[in-house]
Amino acid sequence: MAVEGTTGPAAGRETGRVTKRRVRTRARLLDAAFAVFSAKGFGRVSIEEVCEAAGYSRGAFYSNFTTLDELFFALYRQRADLIAEQVARALAVDGADPGVPASVDRVTEALLLDVDWLLVKTDFLVHAARDPDVARTLLEHRERLRRAIAGRLARTAAGPGPMDLPAVLGDADGAAHAVVAAYDGVTVQLLLDKDVERARAWLRQLLTALLTDGGGTSG
């Protein structure tokens, strides 16, 4: 039986078990936080409520996070990485039409449009707007998403059957800013009418227009 201070193979197995348990604990806290934040709103939730929803004590929370802000940033990064991965997968389909309309169709079909997440993100955006330190961190996370999209756009533009970006957008980085702005705009409407299919249709039209100088014929 491994005890604190044990060395050798037993200690390694114990460390592995602790690490896996910590990963599970962190994942459950993130899932619980998402559920509670979406139901009640960020800023209206306590650490105790997150712990209760996850089935853990405050000790479990503080062994993984120091504040609710830190927990939210972990949740935001998880979602931002998912969105970037969805965009990358949609643009990297082997043998798929590399043209803008076809690429936009794949992106809008794959892209995460989750009303509960948008509620959480919007609450936190308002919170960050009143706290420069929190805003700076949130901007850094948003920049990671833009860089991921810009990298994929640059590779697509330079690849076989190149995609020519409109001159008004400048380079791939400018195009990525436009893509994120379009996504942000469409999701505001989605928060109000909860119509996911309509939001996808609007996003498809906006991205096609943005990335083709307003043109972009399909077929």
Score class of each variant (00 low, 15 high):
R13I: 07
T15P: 03
T15M: 08
T15G: 11
G16D: 09
G16W: 12
R17F: 12
R17T: 13
V18A: 04
T19A: 14
K20H: 11
K20W: 08
K20P: 06
K20M: 13
R21G: 13
R21P: 08
R21F: 09
R22A: 09
V23L: 12
V23W: 06
R24G: 12
T25Y: 01
T25K: 05
T25W: 01
R26H: 00
A27S: 03
R28Q: 08
R28S: 05
R28G: 04
R28K: 07
L29S: 01
L30G: 01
D31F: 02
D31C: 00
D31G: 03
A32W: 02
A32R: 05
A33Y: 04
A33H: 03
F34I: 05
A35K: 11
F37A: 01
F37Q: 00
F37D: 00
S38M: 03
A39R: 15
K40S: 14
K40Q: 15
G43C: 13
V45H: 12
V45M: 09
S46G: 14
I47K: 12
I47R: 13
I47G: 14
E49M: 05
E49Q: 15
V50C: 08
V50M: 11
V50K: 14
C51H: 14
C51Y: 14
A53Q: 13
A53R: 14
A54Y: 10
A54R: 08
G55F: 10
Y56C: 05
Y56T: 11
S57T: 15
S57Y: 06
S57E: 13
A60C: 08
